[in-house]
Amino acid sequence: MRIIFMGTPEFAVPVLDALVEAGHDVVAAYSQPPRAGGRRGKALTPSPVHARAEALGIEVRTPLSFRKEPGEVEAFAALDADVAVVAAYGLILPVPVLEAPRHGCLNVHGSLLPRWRGAAPIQRSILVGDAETGVGIMQMEAGLDTGPVRLEDRTPIDRKTAGELTDELSAMGARLMVTVLGDLDRHPAVAQPDDGVTYAPKIDKAEARLDFGQPAEVVERQVRAFNPAPGAFFEYDGERFRVHAAEIVDASAPPGTVIDEMLTIACAQGAIRPSRIQRAGRGVMTSRELLRGFAIPAGARL
């Protein structure tokens, strides 16, 4: 097929690679514009999709908006694509874009629709304690992730972090997309059910502050949902500490109290014990390594 690819973060890269490996003709890749990066925030850094597409010799386009730049819609349509494949692109696609390719636009969505429509389905599914999640190949329409689904697969969440689950769902979505494109007629679009609709708003960095006023199970899910980004954290003695992994412990004390010399922290019910932690400006280490060089004594309040 003659395909336009549209994606931005690392999640989308395996999908692009799979299309190329399957022999499709990717005529252009659309991605978010390069962002300021580097220590001083001056250097412009291309997105992971932008960098990968260039390495594959694919033309890259980075419009700021389709709605505010009408010429971009005409340029998109002029590519005369059979289909557009969308994976975490990050821009709203107006109806003329959705309808330009002969078979419309197919989206790789990281949830079991209609649950978790929106920007952050993977993190939200972990935060609320869903037992499983998955990927759907959705035929896009004007609504927010409301389109019919052609194919889906699922996986248990278990104790996976958002990073681990993102990698798994990305590979799953790449495989499903290649399957659907191999025979569109064999995978007709099926309308989403009316029941079970939930929304997954974008993650606010303030949500990553660990809330020890919640049960330990909820706090531990925060740790996994915000790993690797934005990073769950607590503050002590004027410093911020990112918690990369933690276990649930059967212990009790006033919420936020350090219970012992192993950095066990009381929650509203139960406690958590960080196993991998990071001081600001330092590398990731075990809690034992941290405590050898920085005291957080029993009785401290976080």
Rank of each mutant, 00 (worst) to 15 (best):
I3P: 02
I4R: 00
E10S: 14
F11D: 05
P14M: 12
A18R: 12
H24E: 13
H24R: 13
A28E: 08
Y30T: 03
P34E: 09
G37F: 11
A43T: 15
T45F: 01
H50M: 01
E59L: 13
V60G: 08
L64F: 09
K68I: 00
E69R: 13
E69Q: 14
G71C: 11
E74K: 13
V83P: 03
A88K: 03
L91H: 04
L91V: 00
L91Q: 09
V95K: 13
V95C: 00
C105T: 04
L106W: 11
N107Y: 04
S111G: 10
S111N: 07
L113Y: 05
A120R: 05
D130P: 05
E132K: 14
I137P: 10
T146L: 09
V149N: 06
E152R: 15
T155E: 11
T155S: 08
R159W: 07
A162V: 10
G163A: 10
T166A: 14
D167L: 12
M172H: 02
A174Q: 08
L176Q: 09
L176Y: 08
L176I: 10
T179E: 15
V180T: 11
V190L: 10
D195A: 14
T198P: 03
K205D: 14
D211T: 03
D211C: 05
F212G: 05
Q222W: 11
A225T: 09
A225E: 03
N227C: 13
N227T: 15
P230S: 12
D237M: 04
G238A: 02
R242D: 12
A245I: 01
A245W: 03
I248Q: 14
A253T: 07
P254F: 06
E261P: 01
Q269N: 11
G270F: 00
G270I: 00
R276L: 15
R276Y: 09
Q278V: 10
V284F: 02
M285K: 13
S287R: 06
E289H: 11
R292C: 02
A295F: 00
I296S: 03
P297S: 02
R301K: 14
